[in-house]
C-alpha cells in the first residue's frame, strides 16, 4: 500500500519530517518556515489596492519594514492547502463533521454559530501572531529550534492561554460528552 494512501502516520515520523523540512528551508530559501507574515503582507497589499484610506495602509508602510509582496513564504502558505488536499484525497480522509462534537457540546450544532466562532477566533489568533511576530510555526517550531529566547517565552505562554481558554469554554461540556 502506498504510504500516501494511509490516513495517518506516526506523530513522531511527521515531526521528524517537519524537522528535516526546516533544514531544507534554511538551506535552500535561507529562511525558517513561517505562515503569518504572508497574511500581514497580503492584508497590506489588498488594502493598498482596494481601500488605501480605510485600511490605513500608508501610515503602516511608513512605519514598517514589511511591504506587500508575493514571496517564498506566501507560496509556502498556499502550498499547505495543496499538500493537505493531495494527502487527504489520496487517503480518502475528507469526511469531517460540519460542526465538531466538542464545539457542538457547548455552542450547539448550528453551522452558522460555528463559522462565526471560527472567524472571530481566527481574527484574534492572527492579530496575536502579528503582535508577537510569529505563530505555532514561526515561534513554536522555527524559533524554538533556533533556541530564540522570544520563542521559548511565546510558546509556553501561548500553550497555557490556549489550554486555559479551551478548559473554560469546553471543560465541563466535553466531560459530559464522554
Amino acid at each position: 500500500m502506498n504510504i500516501l494512501e494511509k490516513k495517518s502516520w506516526s506523530p513522531y515520523a511527521v515531526g521528524a519530517g517537519i524537522g528535516v523540512l526546516s533544514w531544507i528551508s534554511f538551506l535552500t530559501a535561507k529562511k525558517p518556515i513561517g505562515i503569518t507574515t504572508a497574511f500581514e503582507n497580503t492584508a497590506a497589499g489588498l488594502g493598498q489596492r482596494f481601500a488605501p484610506k480605510a485600511s490605513g495602509v500608508n501610515a503602516y508602510l511608513a512605519k514598517n519594514e514589511e511591504v506587500p509582496k508575493l514571496d517564498w513564504e506566501w507560496m509556502l502558505a498556499a502550498g499547505v492547502a495543496l499538500g493537505s488536499w493531495l494527502s487527504s484525497t489520496a487517503s480518502g480522509d475528507r469526511e469531517a463533521e460540519r460542526v465538531p462534537a466538542v464545539w457542538a457540546s457547548r455552542f450547539g450544532s448550528s453551522s452558522v454559530t460555528r463559522d462565526v466562532g471560527a472567524f472571530i477566533g481566527g481574527a484574534l489568533m492572527m492579530f496575536g501572531a502579528r503582535v508577537a511576530k510569529g505563530c505555532t510555526s514561526g515561534h513554536a517550531i522555527s524559533g524554538t529550534q533556533q533556541l530564540a529566547a522570544s520563542s521559548w517565552i511565546f510558546s509556553p505562554v501561548m500553550a497555557a492561554a490556549a489550554a486555559g481558554v479551551a478548559r473554560a469554554l469546553f471543560g465541563k461540556a466535553a466531560a459530559r460528552a464522554h
Binding site: I35, I120, G122, G128, V157, G164, V165
Partner: peptide, 21 residues
C-alpha cells in the same frame, strides 16, 4: 509584544480550534 501576542494567539486558537498553518 511576546506576552501580549501569545495570550491573544492562544485565546483565539482555543476558539477557532486550529492554528494558522
Amino acid at each position: 509584544s511576546i506576552l501580549g501576542g501569545a495570550v491573544l494567539f492562544g485565546s483565539g486558537m482555543a476558539v477557532t480550534g486550529y492554528c494558522p498553518g
